[in-house]
């Protein structure tokens, strides 16, 4: 599975960042398109200005707040230039000044010379750092679009996988008529945000479902807004498999499968498909089983414990 290497140009950052930040570009316009942020973590320039610049990471936003400006303004002009040059300005992705502070003239001049974007926001450092981190985490999250169906059921996101033609979309339609909602049919965009997987529909096919024989239908128009969800955290995965492809079926339901996406494991039920098996009931029940297990109840285990007591095995 290959995902896009996430990064964002400074120009895109300025354009897309939350409006509360009201970012303005003070200098270094030349670098807006060819400097990139590739980490959601920020750095404060503090110690680097005092001479300890080894910790500067290339792909992070460098925050300059009251203390940095204060430190710089009490230096003599020559020392200031030296302190700023020390930062290895070719390496730094961009500098964000907070609290609407005015940069020292040397900083503006050097940023302009080096094509290092010098940005400013009126927010105070703590607020700005929070906004920036949340925004970057979202936009830099690794992302992939996979073949599958994503449903919202009993408050959790259920990813349904399986080869084409096995009945994922029909199953989704059936689940919709039972009051669950569709998030994405046939193609699901999955993002790793922190240690969670967020799923949603690619914009183009949001609300649509394809059923063999009926063609492409619009779920929002046919069933109303409550049948559609915008996105959800993916908590379990259901894989539909042809009965014939099954080597061995776990008849007790003790063995838990897992699906790995971006290194995160989510519990998976593998359901054999054959005529006469009502898929949507099975999927719905699988989700209920998962919720019960989360709450600490496991039918298979409790039966086995009872049985063991009976045969004196414990």
């Amino acid at each position: 599975m290959q995902s896009k290497t996430p990064n964002i140009s400074i120009a895109a950052f300025v354009e897309k960042s939350p409006p509360e930040l009201q970012i303005e570009v003070l200098a270094g316009n030349a670098g807006l398109d060819d400097r990139f942020i590739n980490s959601a973590r920020i750095q404060k320039l503090g110690l680097a200005l005092a001479g300890f610049a080894h910790y500067i990471h290339k792909g992070r936003i460098q925050i300059v707040g009251q203390s940095e400006i204060w430190y710089l303004s009490q230096l003599e002009s020559e020392k200031r230039t030296e302190a700023i040059q020390n930062l290895d300005l070719d390496k730094v992705s961009c500098i964000l000044i907070t609290k609407g502070l005015d940069p020292v003239p040397e900083l503006t001049r050097l940023a302009e010379d080096k094509g290092l974007p010098l940005l400013r926001t009126n927010m105070i450092s703590s607020g700005a750092i929070n906004q920036v981190s949340v925004f970057l985490q979202e936009i830099l999250a690794p992302q992939i679009t996979l073949h599958g169906v994503l449903m919202g059921m009993f408050g959790i996101g259920v990813l349904i996988l399986g080869d084409s033609g096995i009945g994922k979309s029909e199953c989704a339609l059936d689940l919709i008529t039972r009051g669950h909602y569709l998030i994405a049919d046939d193609s699901v965009t999955i993002k790793k945000v922190g240690d969670k997987l967020e799923g949603k529909s690619p914009e183009l096919i949001q609300d649509y479902l394809e059923i063999h024989g009926l063609g492409i239908i619009n779920i929002r128009e046919l069933f109303g807004v409550s049948a559609i969800g915008k996105g959800s955290q993916i908590e379990i995965c259901i894989e539909l498999k042809n009965w014939k492809e099954f080597e061995e079926i776990d008849r007790l339901g003790l063995k838990m499968h897992e699906e790995e996406i971006f290194g995160l494991k989510i519990p998976k039920f593998v359901l054999p498909v054959s005529s006469g098996r009502n898929l949507s009931t099975l999927v719905e029940t699988a989700v209920r089983i998962h919720l019960l297990r989360e709450a600490g109840f496991d039918a298979a285990r409790s039966l086995i414990e009872k049985h063991q007591l009976l045969v004196g095995g414990l």
Binding site: M1, Q2, S3, K4, Q143, I144, T145, L146, H147, D163, S164, G165, D185, D186, S187, P202, L204, I205, Y208, L209, E210, I216
Partner: peptide, 14 residues
């Protein structure tokens, strides 16, 4: 980073 199943129209359109 889009993976589509060639047997599914919505997936291919994505």
């Amino acid at each position: 980073a889009v993976v589509a199943d060639a047997k599914s129209i919505l997936s291919v359109l994505t």
